[in-house]
Amino acid sequence: MKNTTVKSLFSLKKIIYVVLILGFVTAVAAPFNNSRKIIQPATETIAANTKIIDPVVDKEKTQADKIREKESAEAFNEAYKVLMHPRCMNCHPSGDAPLQGDDSHIHTQNVTRGKDGKGVYAMKCSNCHQKENIAGLNMPPGDPNWHLPPANMKMVFQGRTPAQLAAQLKDPKQTGKTLQQMLKHVEEDHLVLAGWNPGEGRTKPPLSHAEFAAKFREWIEKGAVVPK
């Protein structure tokens, strides 16, 4: 009887020690959890850890982050519809020849990119493409700087999934541009805008240029999230 009492007292002590140690560890660990949260928000691991510290506040923050990320990805998916439209993609081909038409066939004359993206020999873009569109059905569209991306920075859209294209567009090594410069290209480059003035016989992208640029801006401002 006495033995049993001593034993259970001993077990009780053990439990108290364990609880104290746990409390101490949690108190020491808490600041680390906080600092980690600032560096990389909203991964699954952090979300689980932060619950222990302050379930209410942290859950809210994570939720806001998650919404922002979702909106960024959704904005990209909208912009993607324009990026993959023939008026945009035809000059961002996977090969070295530009594409033509809504079926994105290889450009007639088998035109080639060349080093600077402006064609080669007797097959320079500007030999046919003038500063402005030529009037008439399916006549060559124009722009003062008609070209493909250069050979050292091909900026391929053709065949890219939304995730692949988003990852590519935010990688300066693959674009030669910061995201801000990329946004400027999308918002202001007259060759980009030429997609919305395609000349007779060509369809326009599914969004207006203003809508497209706004989606692209939203994607970047909400974190340039790569959609799943």
Binding site: M123, N127, Q130, G136, M139, P140
Partner: peptide
């Protein structure tokens, strides 16, 4: 319509297609 090349001439050394290139250029 700049498809065939029969009208090719040189403009400052470039092989432009004269059937669609405006004389203003």
């Amino acid at each position: 319509m700049a498809q065939c090349g029969a009208c090719t001439v040189h403009l400052n050394g470039d092989a432009i297609r004269s059937c669609i290139t405006p004389v203003a250029r």
